[in-house]
Design a protein around this nucleic acid. Structure first.
Lengths: 213, 213, 213, 213
DNA sequence: AATGAATGAGTCTTCATTCAT
DNA sequence: GATGAATGAAGACTCATTCAT
């Protein structure tokens, strides 16, 4: 329990106070102005640290980016979190509706917590193979297998229709969720949303489709 | 009908050969490496033009970005295209299914054609107010009103369910489509996809939902 | 009488309308922003001429500067003007006072007329040997001999003190005049000056000194 | 008394060796070729410093110009110097003659010391409001009040004529001095001058005028 | 003669990275 | 470990000059 980041990655030593401040500053600034829009000396200034100090810990600016972004994936893959998600799926939901709603809530919280890292990841994904690798690895080897397994089980139990490929179902759901999050937190992040109502409608539409019954 | 770009914007003069080559080079390179990852002298070299020539036409590099990106929106708003989309919606579809499938096809083509501009727009959106303005203007004042109107008509005709807000329906559909395009053209752009089959499933799920009937 | 600038320099052909407009534009802009603060394309635009046109007449930008500045010296040396000045000096002035006052008036007019060229000359003198040569030549070979001769005559006639070197007398007078012109036309060019009164005082001080009699 | 530059301006830290070398190089080159005739990389090379180093201390090239030029005015206004000048004026001179001669000597030394800065200031004055402000401020708020007061006192004591406005007297004197300095140090800076004799004549002419008594 | 598109060397400035202290 | 002065390569942009039309 001495290490804040329990196992998971090769990151051995806990971060010093200064290092943490650098990461915080970098995250905030990258999120606001993009990786290449921020100069290292600005990060240093905001972190209250000498510019050289940054390069003592991270050899290059890109290393810093990776360090800023990696925790998202470590946390994504952290046993505890995976367990949590798995538990979510494994609970004997009475129907798919409750499940979907629970996942939506769960992700909402996750996104609200990691909003800035997510922004940075999405923005820098196209230009940094290192980041891309982190992301695809995390998705392919950890999330997707679980997701797929869960889905197939639900289909077997007759709780979701069996005449559709899991990847299409997953994609539609993720697409709908993502569209909502994008609108909610990026395009129009005001306070005027009735989140519960939106969730309700999103889930109902996903379940029953847009065709009138 | 003498000018290739029929009215539309205040841009009066047609582009010279060199200007066109600069735009092409810039588009290609911005798409690959991002706006700030490309130096103007590289663009010049790729376009077979002196660096100074670029700045004769566009005062700054950012002006060049806008020039690269703007045609997408001009074309998006070009009367012909708007007409086409409107016609698509206004045709007396027997059901929503055929409509959705037609729109999906139509957008697929649009995306395949403008793949690179779209990539640039999405990538640079967060950092360039000018680009953001272009995009939000195009969407808010042109696309959304039509979309909303169409949708409300469909609801009135009993062709889609009336107990869901148009914006949620639209968002779910767009989300599903976008997720598909992203996977299809960015994440895994191989040739191994059966596009028709994917379309079929996407549309069916949107229409009928994932709950078994 | 066909040539506006009669003899004097190697300049054979009269200027075309466009050439004159270029010279005018260049003079005005050089005076305002300095030689190196003005781009040739700005001169061209102001003159309503294509940039290339300038270089048809003057091989380089510096040639243009010389062309802008040279007329001052041609005019300075133009027989007519020299005659005028010489006449000024040769007239049988009752005393030095009237002479000084006449010269001051005469120079005032000259400066007001050629204000901008003078400004350009003074500003660019230090950096352009060509301009410096023009100036020193004009002064050494034309003005100074006359000035000196006149002065020595005045001394011989007992109209100015003989126990001072002509060059010191000339320098003091020119210094006082120049200081006045500088303040009057550059430092504080307002309309609140009583020119006649200033002239009166300047001349009296030059003549009688600052020591009370 | 630990800092070589005793208070005076907001400039707190003393200059490092490299900064001083940059200032020296810049001063020398600006004086020779003018502000806009010198490239920053040349200054860097001459100072034996990387080009970037310059911009660490001075944000822009113009800032460097101001830094080069400002010390003149700080020194001009430095308490010690002001005191010195004031003392010069306040000493109970037997007559105005001795005073004028002393001032002339004093200024000669000042000019010989600061020759290059003075040149730069005069050359760049017309084009850089920042420099102009420095100069006019220094003159208006510090030098002129003292000068005027002194002069009026001398008039009251009957040591200089009272029937001439102080500003005209001052202007004539300054003009005569300036003309001399210009000829002596700029136009014809040789060693063949008999400075003492020139001073003698300048002062006598100023005092007694050019009219024979 | 006149044009103005095109050039490319040159300019100021930024910034990730290094290293002596 | 930490510092921050120093670096120099690279970047966006300017501008006098040329040349095909």
């Amino acid at each position: 329990m001495k290490q804040p980041e329990p196992a998971g990655a090769g990151e051995a030593k806990p971060l010093t106070d200064k290092q943490q401040r650098v990461l915080d500053a970098a995250l905030e600034m990258f999120a606001e102005r993009g990786y290449s829009g921020v100069a290292t000396n600005e990060i240093a200034k905001r972190a209250g640290v000498a510019e050289g100090t940054i390069f003592k810990t991270w050899k290059t600016k890109k290393d810093l980016l990776v360090a800023v972004v990696a925790p998202l994936f470590f946390r994504l893959l952290a046993p505890r979190l995976l367990e949590e998600v798995r538990a979510l799926f494994l609970r004997p939901w009475p129907d798919a509706e409750s499940l979907l709603r629970a996942v939506l809530l769960n992700r909402t919280e996750f996104i609200r917590e990691h909003q800035r890292v997510l922004k940075v990841v999405l923005q820098e994904l196209p230009f940094h193979p290192e980041v891309r690798t982190l992301a695809t690895d995390a998705i392919k080897t950890r999330l997707w297998p679980d997701l797929r397994a869960t889905w197939e089980r639900l289909q077997a139990e007759g709780k979701v229709r069996a005449d559709a490929a899991p990847h299409v179902i997953a994609r539609n759901i993720i697409g709908a969720f993502a569209a909502w999050f994008l609108v909610r937190y990026v395009v129009d992040p005001g306070d005027h949303w009735n989140d519960a109502d939106e969730h309700e409608q999103i889930v109902r539409l996903l379940l029953d489709g847009i065709r009138p019954r």
